[in-house]
Design a protein around this nucleic acid. Sequence first.
RNA 1: GCAAGGGUAGCCAAGCCUGGCCAACGGCGCAGGACUUAGGAUCCUGUCCUUAGUGGUCCGAGGGUUCAAAUCCCUUCCCUUGCACCA
Length: 1039
Amino acid sequence: MCHSSPTTMILIVVVYSCVKTGVAMSEWTTEIEAKWQKRWYDAKINEAERDSRPKFMIIFAYPGLTGYLHVGHMRGYTYVDAIGRFMRMTGHNVMFPVGTHATGNGAISLARRVERGDQKTIEYLKNNGCTDEDLEKLKEPLSVVSFFNDVYIQQYWKRFGFLSDWRRFTSTVHPGYSKFIQWQFRKLHDKGLLFQKPYFAPACIECGPVAVDASETDLSKGGNAETTEYTLLKFKCEDYSLVAATVRPETVYGQTNFWVNPDVEYVKVKINDEIWVISPQSFEKMKLQKDGMELMGTIPGRELIGKMATAPVIHRDIPVLPAKFCKPEVGTGLVTSVPSDAPDDWMSIHILKNNDEMIQEYGLDPAMVKSIKAIPIIDTKGYGPLPAAELIEKMGITEAGDPRLDEAKKMIYKDGFHTGVMNLNCGPFAGMKVEEAKEKMKQMMLESGEADLFYDLSEEVICRCGQPVFIKKVPDQWFIDYANPEVTEQTKEHCKGMHILPADYYNNVQGVLDWFRERACVRQGNWLGTRFPYDDKWIIEAISDSTLYPVYYIISKYYSEGVIREDEMTEEFFDYVLLGKGDIKTVSENTKVDLDTLHNIREDVLYWYPLDLNLGGKEHMTVHFPAFLMNHAAILPKDMWPRGIFVNWYVTGKLGKISKSKGGAEPIPDAAGKFGVDSLRLYYAHIAVPFADVAWDEDAIVTYEARMERILRTIDSLKELKGTDLKDVDSWLISRMNTRIDTIRDCMYEYDIRGMANEVYFEALNDMRWYMRRGGRNKKTAQKALEIWVKMMAPITPHIAEEVWESLGHEDFVSIADYPEYDENDSDFGAEIAEEYLESVIDDIKEIMKVIDNQNAKIAEENPSATPKKPGTIYIYTTPMWKMKIQAMAKDMLGNMRLPALLRPAAVSREMMRSGNENDSILETAFDAGKKAASRMLAIPALTKAVMANNELKKRGKESADFARKLAEEFNKKSDVEIAKATLELNEYDYLKEAESFLASELGCDVKVYSADDSDAPDPQNKARASAPKRPAIYIDLV
RNA sequence: GCAAGGGUAGCCAAGCCUGGCCAACGGCGCAGGACUUAGGAUCCUGUCCUUAGUGGUCCGAGGGUUCAAAUCCCUUCCCUUGCACCA
């Protein structure tokens, strides 16, 4: 409890008398958390060693080490621990290892920020509990790694009571891990899955390669920039080429003129045997992408104006005209003009045509200028032949500098790209879709030498060091070939048999794998990680070194316990233990690893692998998971490919995603102390399905905390029961719990933690309370139910479960007890139906009472002095025998008629729709059969006939027939033979009679139960007539 | 742009795959009552409209399939998320 006043303290003393006295909830939980964690770890129940049990290996995708984690991260981790605990309790030998991903520049960047005393960073670290002493250490990247490794383990995972095997902990910068990664890359290389080709990547002039992404770990500005590919178009003009950059190469057929900014001093650059004219800014960038560029001199833009240049593809001479919208920092600072589809071009021509002064100033031929006419080239849906002109008019733009021109440009580009078709002016491309023509025309021009390519960032990007970031050519970049068709196919096929959650992702992963293509896998520069085995200058990139690693957890134990050293972890070593390659004696001689160890590791690998479940956040769906799957498929034998993937969504802040670097949520240890770990675990498990984001809301956690308290109080009350009588409600409770066990096991088979939590912490709690409310007082029943319940809780709220378990007199851990199992003998469907029946009777009575209240209110409105009528005695009349008889007949007739699902008309017609073949004869037959069967279901005449054949019932005439019809209708709506049977077996009169006093206390007035067959029963309003099976008639006598 | 997900009563959130015990689990909030000196504690009850336990309307909007639709199909509006050298 976060707000414990002195009085609440007193209450708690009373409430927790059986568990713990004298402390507030949060103090109490903190105390028991530490206590049980110590006991678990001392007893090593978390440690995983090979044995004869079936194994279960589960991990979460290890977190990147870039600082403190926040409460959101614990969501997925908690799922993993809870699933692991459940599996452990259902007879599995569970391995749940953890690690951290330190590859990358997160630690480096953090260390640098600490070193230079960055205020925001220091503040953030201190808010998370970092001391001044710690800060000193954090100036060195590897210390950052070890510092946070410790924080993650001690403050997060152990704090949450995870039964992780700590001996297996590894970090990606551990030497043993590096050895493993190098082995992995040698295997990829052997399989021909590594290759080199030039690559264009963002790089700082000073620091080398940097990552441009929104989190801006490498950057001080421009994290949202995107790489744009420009097609460079060369326009022959005298002895040089004017080079324009465009993102719309498909528009070359519409070129009418060329734009030059008169105020820019352009440069002449020699490249191969051509001379290009471009802006100086673009030259700086281009140098990084093209070899052998040489500055020859400069040329003022003004000087170019009025010349003629030969446009590519169309080979027409077009005039060079002045335009101020050509910015030297964008593209090449030179622009080709396509007024049909480019609003800027249209506007500038329009203005120039009407500005004689300007024409004169630049010495242009007025006739030539005025003769320029836009050439329609693309038919775009919703536009005429000249989209630019059309949109400008529609938007009412009249000036060259109008910012809406940009908006117009984007609109036309977007619409043109998706809906446009090249028209007859476009030579061989006429009739082709823009999407297609764009690529084809670009290729054509590249081949003919009329065009080239140039990459640029969409906005200014500045490195952390202050230098600009440009796109730089990396000539010998290594890639992993994830597009490899064979591996892709194998992986896709394997996924079909995997347990992938959510189901959407199960389907989508097929598409993701198709889409997954070559991926740059090494980088240079400031970076922690493993050296690339084939070339030391490269370091393996962060996604690529975290794909096969789960298998390394099996080995990491031997490494961290010093049984093997990194120099012994050779290619031969891994080949043997992971692939079974080679002869154990030879391997032992060569590696110096002793035979036993080699044998043990190999056996461990065979035992533990494949991985049963890999859980990760949704960001992994298109990044980590496909790589994880494909590396397994590429390197390991088929029987070691993973079995399951679980994708979880996020915990967001109220204003958006909680960010690791920006903070926004309270530190994990603080939350744990404030609410209690088990309350938090329950919160994660139950707040929503794992496949939806939830907003972090402390109020919500408080309610889960309150629920835990309520459960504890209920447990205390149950423990106090001393009775020996057995009532109906006793077998009801046991049966109920038994049903819950069944449901929970079904849930957990699908890793449905929320479903499980709902049963245990909500439904079962209601059962316990109902039991006591109904007068259940039996000590044995209570004890049995309690033991089941506490075991049920152990996966999600283990600390409290242990504490209660101990208070029940157990000396072992509930964490390794057997999870409750469904027991046929405990099942009492009749008892469950009976209690349901009782509840529905109460509901009906309350419904009537509500109506009475409403009526009283109405009367009071009209006549304030009237005395409101109050329920005096409630009369209940249970169904007469003859109706039961009809019910029995209906059950017999209809019970066996339940259609198999496939024959139901709706199912069949849906099948027909899906197959798209309405003539499918099999389906048609099924459809007919379904129809026929359905008509049989509505067997009203049949039932009526049967009823009338019975003399006794026939005597009642219409009354019997009416009831038969009603019943048949009812049955057709919701026929369940089991329920019908149980209903018939229930003696309603006896049952309600016994519950009379309970009903009276529930409803607050006298209750009298009669049978409708009892002719002596008082029935002033003749209600008894209306009674039916499971629906007794009710009369409330008002006083 | 590409790919995916979602819109459910005041709010949060189940259900949807496998149509029918769905006026729609549960929680919060709110209202009333009980217990109390008091309560932000706890326990009961209620919480779409109407109504002696019935009926009506309802699951973003509009169509359709079906004996039957929150659930299946189509159209449409709105929102969210991921997108590669970033972990």
